[in-house]
Design a protein around this nucleic acid. Structure first.
Length: 282
DNA sequence: ACCTCCCTGGCC
DNA sequence: GGCCAGGGAGGT
């Protein structure tokens, strides 16, 4: 499931193929992929024969700046990935978008479960789009400990749910939220407002190292290999995850058994001994 | 701040 | 044959 590290790794491989290139043709498969556009035809009409200026990222969104102040956004959803291939390569099942540039390589969006989407937006449309309600980026623009503390103050929701709230901090998904809470020694069900200053600093200090390791490893490809880099290689973070998907196995820090619970309808993996419910920890 | 829906492949 | 994975958005 692409989260910030997977999208960032994708961005880094994709950028050299797109920046400065001119888009020659665009084809879309299922109309569902363009559901975020005002008019579905906008994607093809607005990208064709335009130059790509910059490939960026906000949270889990790729934000690609195109000539004439257009922004091409791509979200990979649960099962999406970008593939860069020769245009005569065979087309994989669930390919929803194909973009040919003047450089010959073809950029494809492959997404089995179609939670992902694509849109090309004018500045006004971008301002009205939910993407404009994203919080600060967890990697490029992480709030300071005091800002984080202020944002969590009086929040009764579990910290795990708050980390997943893209309007608060953008980019964290289920895997890295669990990894960050493990590193910080915080139980996923702790209420946001219950964290003391030391705990907030531990939480804050855990975000960057976890993301850095994940980005360096090109993200996490799970056993299903739904996520792969644009060149087709797998991300190598899976073996380095401490708790996510590891329920029943020993904690790498203390040897206690990693547990899996459900918090707000999402799985949460944690070490009951390193991440005690009552605070403290570490 | 909660609940429901969207979607497919893999697994019990 | 049914359930589960889960990011985001919309509705209550």
């Amino acid at each position: 499931m692409p989260e910030l590290p997977e999208v960032e790794s994708t961005r880094r491989q994709l950028a050299p193929h797109l920046e400065g290139a001119i888009i020659r043709s665009v084809s879309l498969g299922s109309p569902r992929v363009s559901r975020r556009n005002v008019r579905p035809d906008d994607i093809v009409d607005r990208l064709t024969n335009r130059r790509v200026d910059h490939v960026g990222r906000r949270g889990k969104f790729l934000t690609i700046e195109v000539a004439d102040d257009l922004t091409w956004i791509i979200h990979l959803g649960m099962s999406g990935r970008i593939s860069v291939v020769e245009s005569d390569d065979s087309v994989a099942l669930h390919t929803h978008m194909r973009v040919l540039t003047d450089r010959g390589a073809e950029i494809r969006l492959i997404d089995t479960r179609t939670f992902g989407f694509v849109a090309v937006l004018t500045p006004d449309e971008l301002a009205a789009d939910p993407i404009s309600r994203l919080g600060r980026d967890a990697w490029l623009d992480l709030p300071s400990p005091s800002e984080l503390g202020a944002a969590l103050e009086n929040r009764i929701a579990p910290i795990k749910a708050l980390l997943l709230d893209q309007g608060l901090i953008a980019g964290l998904g289920n895997i890295y939220a669990d990894e960050i809470l493990f590193r910080a020694g915080l139980h996923p069900e702790r209420r946001g407002g219950s964290l003391n200053q030391d705990e907030i600093e531990r939480l804050h200090g855990s975000v960057r190292p976890v993301l850095e390791t994940a980005i360096t490893s090109n993200g996490t490809s799970l056993d299903d290999l739904a996520y792969l880099l644009p060149d087709g290689r797998a991300g190598e973070m899976l073996d380095q995850l401490a708790v996510y998907g590891s329920d029943g196995t020993p904690c790498p820090r203390c040897g206690s058994e990693i547990r899996r619970i459900v918090v707000r309808g999402r799985s949460a993996h944690f070490c009951p001994s390193c991440q005690p419910r009552g605070g403290g920890g570490r």
